[in-house]
C-alpha cells in the first residue's frame, strides 16, 4: 500500500466507526435537523470529498496491457 492508501484506510475505518458511534452516542437524544441528520450528511460529504482528493493523486498511465 502507498502512504496515501494507508492514510485513506485509517480515515475510512474511523469515518465508518464515527458514523455509528456519534449518532448512537452524543446525538441520540437530539431532535431536529441539526442532530444525526446533519451529522450523517456532513460525514458522507467529507468522505466523498476526501475520496475524490485521493483519486486525484492517481497516476495517468494508460499503457497497462491486457494479458
Amino acid at each position: 500500500m502507498s502512504k496515501t492508501e494507508k492514510k485513506w484506510a485509517l480515515f475510512g475505518v474511523a469515518a465508518l466507526i464515527m458514523n455509528v458511534v456519534f449518532p448512537y452516542g452524543p446525538l441520540k437524544g437530539l431532535e431536529g435537523p441539526g442532530g444525526a441528520f446533519l451529522f450523517w450528511c456532513v460525514t458522507t460529504l467529507v468522505v466523498i470529498g476526501a475520496g475524490v482528493a485521493v483519486m486525484s493523486r492517481w497516476g495517468e498511465r494508460s499503457d497497462f496491457r491486457c494479458r
Binding site: G12, C41, T43
Partner: peptide, 16 residues
C-alpha cells in the same frame, strides 16, 4: 438515512 449513508461511506472507502 444513517443506514444508507453508512453504506455509501463504506462503498466510497472500499472503491478507492
Amino acid at each position: 438515512l444513517g443506514f444508507e449513508l453508512t453504506y455509501l461511506v463504506g462503498t466510497v472507502f472500499l472503491l478507492v
